[in-house]
């Protein structure tokens, strides 16, 4: 049995849990355990805080979707979550410009962990105040070769499109590596 994973990251309340819930075949496991004073010396091992979803392909292959914890105090989990990922998605809350700087920061940190492909999803496009993907690309200074996609995390079809676009980028990247 092979498992592969993708990481869904982004600022607090960007819609990561919603995104994973829309396509996961299991209820999204959201875990967050308080750090008890006893446990503090081994923080990393006792604190679990992330979203976890699953898509089974066949008997031999399963895709896991991991959502990073939104709160800053769980930053130390990012690196662990990013190990061995196939690619990652940066979700941006398109109606809250106060989170753009944070989104860019998270993007850069994940890019530093691994050179895997990624896409940026401009979430909450159903809301009237949403910044357009084109404006977000400029606001976040996303390079031309990276996709910035419109997204509504509540809408399964929209989430599928974002996942597929990431997979297409991964495929392209593989072909590029071999050439």
């Amino acid at each position: 049995m092979q498992t592969v994973k993708m990481v869904i990251t982004g600022p607090f309340s960007a819609g990561k849990t919603e995104f994973i819930s829309s396509v996961s075949e299991i209820d999204v496991v959201t875990t967050e355990r308080k750090i008890s004073s006893d446990a503090e010396r081994v923080k990393e091992e006792t604190t679990v805080a992330m979203d976890f979803g699953r898509i089974t392909v066949d008997d031999d292959l399963v895709l896991y979707l991991f959502g990073t914890p939104g709160q800053r105090r769980f930053d130390f989990m990012w690196e662990i979550l990013s190990e061995g990922m196939l690619g990652f998605i940066v979700l941006v809350d398109s109606v809250r410009p106060e989170t753009f700087r944070e989104a860019k920061h998270i993007l850069e940190v994940f890019r530093g962990y691994a050179s895997t492909p990624y896409v940026v999803a401009a979430n909450k496009q159903d809301l009237p105040d949403a910044w357009s993907p084109e404006d977000l690309r400029i606001a976040l200074k996303i390079e031309k070769d990276i996709k910035v996609l419109a997204c509504v995390a509540r809408d399964k079809e929209s989430v599928k499109t974002v996942l597929l676009e990431l997979l297409y980028s991964i495929l392209e990247n593989m072909q590029g590596d071999e050439a």
Partner: peptide, 27 residues
């Protein structure tokens, strides 16, 4: 899982991604 992926040939890796694409299209 990571170790397994690392030992895969490019063709195997590509086939994993293609399978994922097919599966997600069918959701």
């Amino acid at each position: 899982a990571g170790r397994k992926a690392a030992s895969q040939s490019p063709a195997e890796k590509r086939s994993v991604v293609t399978k994922l694409i097919d599966r997600i299209r069918r959701i």
